[in-house]
Amino acid sequence: MNRSRVGGLLANSVVWGYALMILGPTLWVLSNAFKFKIDIITGATLSPFTWMNFQELLFSRQSDFLANLFNSALIGVVSTAIVIIAATMAAFTLAYLEVKPWVRWAILGWALLFHMLPTLTFVGSWYLMYSSIGLHGTYFAVIMTHAVHNLPMALFLMVSFVGALPRELIQAARMDGCTYAQVFWRIVFPLVRGGMIAATALTFIFSWSDFAISLTLTSRDTMTVPVAIATFAQEYDIRYGEMAAGTLLSIMPALLLILVGQNFIVRGLLAGAVK
């Protein structure tokens, strides 16, 4: 009894130790956002508090960070909306309706393959495609590419959520006189709202976090937050404070999501991973 108790405490402390390993460095880095540069460089633990980094980052004339935030939000919202609508409609059809087996196989199989292939192998081709039709650097190009990039995950999530509905429910609606479209809008859509929220949140987060696509397909006007942060870090004279401030702002959506929708994300991540 006693031994297992000690073992339990030990086991717990390992897990909580890991949690501390996550939290500690994160908080340390984020704390830099509220420090003066001199204090960051000298590694002062107790240092005066300042909002200066945020002011510099958001409102100084050399910084485009506000525009970057806007770009990230716009690209995230629009691409997520496209992805979720496309994925949910397709998921319903693939899960319940009579589709030729090869169509189902091709869509889901290709989605799986594309999901696992390194994004970087596609980026060059996208760049050339968009350049050749004059769309490079436009919102349209970035939004479409973010959408296709996140489509497989959203599709798997929605297939698993939509597929979890009882088949008899769909059949009952068919008996009651619904066409496929009516079954979708009146029965499936209201019932998978929870799943759609989870998929929406995850898709938005992944669009918001994307670096590889945004790095190669955005221009100065459409640059997103991650690319901006990377640019900070690449400058010769690294502006640590502003970088930390930018980092802090960039993780806000993720933090918000963890606070309000923890269970949703866990379910979503698991559903996406097991496929």
Partner: peptide, 13 residues
């Protein structure tokens, strides 16, 4: 919540 942090934070961060 803490364990989710690294997963949902942008990799660039």
């Amino acid at each position: 919540g803490i364990f989710l942090l690294p997963i949902v934070v942008p990799p660039i961060v």
